[in-house]
Design a protein around this nucleic acid. Structure first.
Lengths: 392, 392
DNA sequence: CTCGGCATTGAATCCCCAG
DNA sequence: TCTGGGGATTCAATGCCGA
């Protein structure tokens, strides 16, 4: 951990953290030259827009953001044009306030989009106060929404006055950099987490409390600390080990702690001294998982491909064998080159499978069966056997 | 039912429905003079903006709107077994751009706000395709958001291609006409429905199917018919008997049917002839539901289900831990995604449990044990601990 | 009659590499 | 950039049919 990137602008102050020795950066920064020089696994101690501006284009795999919900953006209000104003002597009507929030939102979303790799993705969390503005803004900017995810709180705070429904959830948006992007989604890992059912868009998780909730002098260190389980699922789902995750509103560093545990690199942006210190200590204490624990089940599409012909070549299935559909209605003959022959027609296991069913497509691996002496088995079993025998 | 309001503009065509005799209005309309002359319990057969323009200011208690979602689907989508998904490709869901959709949205939201009484409220339902734009637009216009409500679908359509999280919910926004409004919220009724617990912002309900799903010549009459249970809860929560509920996108009239059953007045706007006819017949046939069936419909007792992966995510059992069979004969390693690793084989706790025993199946919860410092305990104990900690 | 198996279906932004 | 083709991919509820 701790690639250190000095920043040459005269206004910079580079202050190694007293305990960890990791560098926290402050002040204005110039764009880095390339991905190799990214300030990995460290906190950029400045405004997130400024911090992201110091990073090169297309260098980040995933951005997770938990932006402020209100319009008091760390003490500074933002005008639509981007200039800061004095909050005290200016009475803002509602529309101006929304416009200011939108301007701020689009500013950081745009920087985040610039530094994302083409196939990178963005996560944002919010409540009804801000999430609609964030969602509309990111669509306007060109992000492509992939899912909205509901974090259903297992133990929310009740609505004490009884004037509304108990606000028992928060909303996350998962978006790709563009419509055409080939984003990362570890489908099999998610299905595995969910007892062999597809992971849904509603996630039940407890709020952050107990031992996990960071305290400072007996009071909570951050008002909206997110549970590690949330970041765990997000990173497991949409990043790979070794990826770079950036969090523009780092707070007490949940993103960094989980990234370290899961073998991902992280970069945090955070203005507040106190949060930076708490985050540094916390991440320092986090334990990374070993490589074998980190491995997740892979979808077949990311496994090495085995051609049907290979099974014929290697004798797992002999040329001349007759294979059939599950109900034995259709029978086809395996030829030496791995093609099938059915009623004079020839083609791949998939093509002939589709042809006999008069279907637009077909997975021949699961459609066709062979007879192993006792019973019918899908030819996919042979492929699995082959894979087990040939893989280390 | 059936206060009929003639509209005098010369272009109007007033066509009594052949079965019910209730009037369906078409063409351009002039503003009515006052609330007493509202076209209660009838369908205004025209564009909703035009229809609402014909109604007086501050005359409606609640608006429920299910606007087009602007889905922007790609090509055809096939199911794994070969069938084709019946997509929503209707013309009314097509918009040229976000800007066009926003303009449309603000137009109908503005008219709706004008006709709402000062203490009236608005409900809108949508998905991630449109709800962020709708939410931001209504905030811009001056509505005040009270809650966002998540309809968690008990039986959503799966993600067939395994490319994203299953889209298992839709979002509703409940908003008052203005920040200062004294909106209606029947707190006790909601608490009653929810077994003496405050009603939360996430509602579990099945999608509309079975007998409730309206058919026309054997095919669904409307592609996006909403379940009556949803409208029941909404009206019960935020209107009083005798109130006037308007639905700008009436479709097959779920809003009207539920309003009738709950003793509320309704007004629907709908352009399509077919939908109007289906809605008229349906509402005519609607009968009040007795309270017991209402309550059972609203309180689906769902068993808490905890996936093994949840325990890993939340840290109850850390990735990398070794778990074993009761006699310690077999040891397997827990991985980050909740899968087990044993002698190069990977799978769920149940599958690997079956594999090591060479059994057809296995209950992994009782088969595998973890070491808690002193002794071996079944991993099912951890599940119980988790449930105790998170269930209210 | 019931029970089990099989087919159908629901607001869906639903593949990806090689040539 | 476009095309062709290998091959990966589903959950819960309802309703029908045959045993």
């Amino acid at each position: 951990m701790g690639i250190i990137e000095r920043i040459d602008a005269p206004t910079n102050k580079v202050a190694p953290h007293k305990k960890t020795g990791r560098t926290i950066k402050t002040g204005t920064a110039k764009p880095a030259e390339n991905t190799a020089k990214l300030p990995l696994n460290s906190i950029l101690k400045m405004d997130c827009i400024e911090a992201m501006a110091s990073l090169p284009d297309a260098s980040i795999d995933m951005v997770f953001a938990d932006p402020p919900y209100n319009l008091q953006l760390g003490g500074d209000l933002y005008r639509p044009e981007g200039g800061q104003v004095d909050a005290v002597d200016d009475a803002w009507d509602q529309f101006d306030s929304f416009a200011a929030y939108d301007a701020f939102t689009k500013a950081w979303l745009s920087e985040a989009r610039r530094i994302l790799k083409p196939n990178g993705s963005l996560w944002v969390i919010g409540s009804y106060h801000n999430i609609f503005r964030v969602g509309a803004s990111l669509q306007d900017i060109g992000y492509w929404i992939l899912n909205d995810i509901i974090w259903r709180k297992a133990n929310p705070m009740p609505n004490f006055k009884g004037t509304r429904f108990t606000n028992a959830h928060e909303t996350l948006i998962w978006a790709a950099k563009s419509e055409k992007a080939k984003y990362t989604f570890n489908y099999r890992a998610m299905k595995n987490l969910n007892d062999e059912l597809q992971m849904r868009s509603d996630w039940v998780m407890p709020i952050c409390g107990g031992q996990e909730r960071l305290k400072r002098d007996g009071v909570k260190a951050h008002p909206t600390q997110k549970p590690e389980a949330l970041l765990y699922r997000i990173m497991l789902a949409t990043t790979n080990p070794g990826d770079i995750v950036l969090d523009p509103f780092f707070g007490t560093g949940t993103t960094g702690a989980v990234a370290k545990r899961l073998g991902r690199h992280w970069i945090g942006c955070e203005k507040e001294d106190v949060y930076c210190e708490v985050a540094e200590e916390r991440i320092e204490a986090a334990l990374p998982l070993d490589e074998s624990s980190l491995k997740t089940m892979q979808s077949p599409k990311s496994k090495p491909r085995v051609a049907f012909g290979t099974l014929v070549e290697t004798g797992y299935l002999k040329a001349g064998t007759e294979i059939c559909s599950k109900n034995r209605k259709f029978k086809a003959k395996v030829r030496a080159d791995g093609s099938l022959l059915w009623e004079g027609k020839e083609g791949s296991i998939h093509k002939i499978g589709a042809t006999v069913q008069d279907a637009p497509s077909c997975n021949g691996w699961t459609y066709w069966y062979y007879h192993d002496g006792k019973e019918l088995k899908p030819i996919d079993d042979l492929r699995q056997t082959y894979l087990l025998a040939t893989e280390p």
